[in-house]
Design a protein around this nucleic acid. Structure first.
Lengths: 143, 143
DNA sequence: CGGGATCCGATGCGATACTG
DNA sequence: CAGTATCGCATCGGATCCCG
């Protein structure tokens, strides 16, 4: 395909039209877009990446994710639990003990998340170089 | 591995320690974290997903991404261009014509982005079900 | 058409204090 | 330990106007 035409796919949900051709649903309130916003969230991504095969406690997660506030960790974990990606286990002991782990659904998501993290690690030097080049050229245009 | 210990991996950059064991860099200002924040951004994700094999013009992108403002599209495209993921081509014609396309680097990222979108499409019903269940149980606890 | 500049409101998010 | 609740600001991002 060369250049996009008026009936080219647009974001975000792919559906088939009457002729069986893949089209995209452009609605902003599309469910897939909402889920993507949640998953591609700054903190959610890190939590899911971290929980791989680990059962972790609240404070432990907080220590591992530098810069996250207690409030945001709570919020993020609740949303992930609501979405069925994380399982929260409360142990009736004193002091309280709460464990977090990926559900099977969360585990399947972890694979693609990890692929994204891996890609970033592999290409970080290229991106850094591109940024340096861009900033350099931008500076030249001023002078 | 059972439960995380004090030397379990923590976010975000994996590096090897003196013994060659994979460790994670926990610094908040870690480069990988910054890149992830940029890529996993709401609009960046959509732009990259859309630009697959397409060369698209500004207005076209704007139409396809429902809900994006002109300002955010400009900002997003500039950042992606700076990161070397998108190539911006200005045609010296009147009226002006500017094309956007993925660079090879952006193309390699597209694969993992698309995997994330695909995952979301495949599992959206499971997530919707989990949300309904969660909200239902939360409502019961109140009563 | 493809933006840049400015204004300004929503809300994301941190800091702090309190609790079972 | 693992939260909840409240406050307050700072950043994100939309609306609008202007321009080559």
């Amino acid at each position: 395909m060369e250049e996009g035409t008026s009936n080219s796919p647009s974001y975000c949900c792919r559906t088939e039209d009457d002729y069986g051709v893949l089209q995209w649903d452009t609605r902003e309130d599309c469910e897939v877009r909402q889920i993507l916003d949640r998953i591609a969230d700054k903190w959610s991504l890190l939590v899911i990446a971290l929980l791989d095969r680990h059962t972790m406690r609240f404070t432990q997660l907080r220590r591992e994710i530098d810069g996250i506030s207690q409030r945001m960790l709570t919020t993020t974990l609740r949303q992930l639990e609501r979405d069925g990606l994380v399982r929260r286990t409360v142990h009736p002991v004193v002091p309280p003990r709460v464990d977090y782990a990926l559900t099977p659904l969360g585990g399947s998501l972890h694979k693609t998340i990890q692929a994204l993290v891996d890609w970033t690690e592999e290409h970080q030097s290229e991106i850094a170089a591109a940024r340096t080049r861009y900033d350099h050229e931008a500076r030249e245009k001023i002078n």
